[in-house]
Amino acid sequence: MAQEPRSREPLKRLSLHEAVTDRLREMVLEGELPPGSRIPEMRLCDEFGVSRTPLREALKVLANEGLVRLLPNRGAVVAEVTLAEVADLFEVMVGLEDLSGRLLAERVSDDGIAEIRTLHERMVSHHDARERTEYFHVNQQIHHRLTEIAGNTVLLDLYDNLSVKVRRARYLANLQEGRWDESLAEHERILDALTRRDAGELSREMSEHMRHTGDAVLQGLREIMTETAQTG
């Protein structure tokens, strides 16, 4: 069932370009602007309270991120999601997690471990309260901080660029409750390996966690595509 559009306040003029980009990105990632749909530029300008210039600049950023396609003289559309692209995406992400785990074990400080533990405990609280949105927000924070603490800026740039697409695919797949519980258990093992600074185990747990997430996302997308084909 499609979500009701959220009420939105007009954007402030401070950092207008970034604000428009962030808001438009959220609409794509959360499915408010579904794959294949045309971007309604005039309506969004009215909704955001901006001119077409910052909106079009935002569309260029999202095009570079692979979230929208710019059509010459025909505006922009939300990029489609294909199973092949998602499979390729997670294949790369698994490799990045493996490298991140090895670097983390060598470079993480006691304060870094304590920070990840605090975030993990917050994530567990959201899981126990079945607060899915809040859970995934902290989940993203953890993965970003783990990659950041690994201390390789090229790795972090790659991770951040690709994680936008991961987030979109995971949202579209609407993962089952069982995968949510499995994911938390995997995070427990990641935290344990991090605490012990076990490079082999940490890289293995992090890459397997990403592999399992990719498998679940692909399965969810297959089911949705099959159902859409049968009803369409």
Score class of each variant (00 low, 15 high):
residue 141 Q to T: 12
residue 22 D to E: 15
residue 97 E to W: 01
residue 206 M to Q: 07
residue 191 L to K: 07
residue 59 L to V: 02
residue 33 L to S: 02
residue 162 L to M: 13
residue 181 D to V: 07
residue 142 I to L: 00
residue 56 R to D: 06
residue 77 V to W: 05
residue 121 E to Q: 13
residue 39 I to T: 01
residue 225 M to A: 13
residue 165 K to D: 01
residue 164 V to A: 08
residue 106 E to D: 01
residue 222 R to F: 02
residue 166 V to R: 06
residue 190 I to L: 09
residue 198 D to K: 11
residue 181 D to F: 00
residue 57 E to I: 13
residue 100 S to Y: 00
residue 113 I to Q: 05
residue 104 L to R: 04
residue 35 P to M: 02
residue 76 A to K: 06
residue 14 L to N: 13
residue 89 L to C: 09
residue 84 A to C: 04
residue 121 E to I: 02
residue 32 E to K: 01
residue 79 A to H: 05
residue 220 G to N: 03
residue 188 E to W: 03
residue 195 T to C: 02
residue 91 E to W: 09
residue 145 R to I: 10
residue 148 E to P: 09
residue 82 T to K: 03
residue 98 D to R: 11
residue 195 T to L: 12
residue 110 D to P: 08
residue 122 R to M: 10
residue 108 V to P: 04
residue 87 A to K: 07
residue 201 E to N: 10
residue 137 H to L: 13
residue 195 T to S: 11
residue 65 E to T: 10
residue 143 H to C: 02
residue 35 P to W: 02
residue 216 A to C: 03
residue 36 G to N: 09
residue 152 N to H: 02
residue 95 G to N: 10
residue 114 A to N: 11
residue 47 E to R: 15
residue 22 D to I: 08
residue 160 D to T: 14
residue 204 R to V: 08
residue 8 R to W: 12
residue 138 V to N: 00
residue 232 G to K: 09
residue 145 R to N: 08
residue 86 V to N: 01
residue 189 R to C: 02
residue 224 I to C: 10
residue 74 R to I: 04
residue 203 S to R: 00
residue 36 G to L: 08
residue 154 V to C: 01
residue 105 A to R: 05
residue 105 A to C: 03
residue 43 R to T: 15
residue 64 N to V: 15
residue 224 I to N: 01
residue 172 L to M: 01
residue 101 G to Y: 06
residue 225 M to D: 14
residue 136 F to P: 02
residue 197 R to M: 09
residue 170 R to E: 12
residue 210 M to Y: 01
residue 95 G to Q: 01
residue 145 R to C: 07
residue 76 A to P: 06
residue 153 T to Q: 13
residue 10 P to N: 06
residue 51 S to F: 01
residue 125 S to F: 04
residue 75 G to L: 11
residue 202 L to R: 04
residue 209 H to S: 08
residue 166 V to F: 10
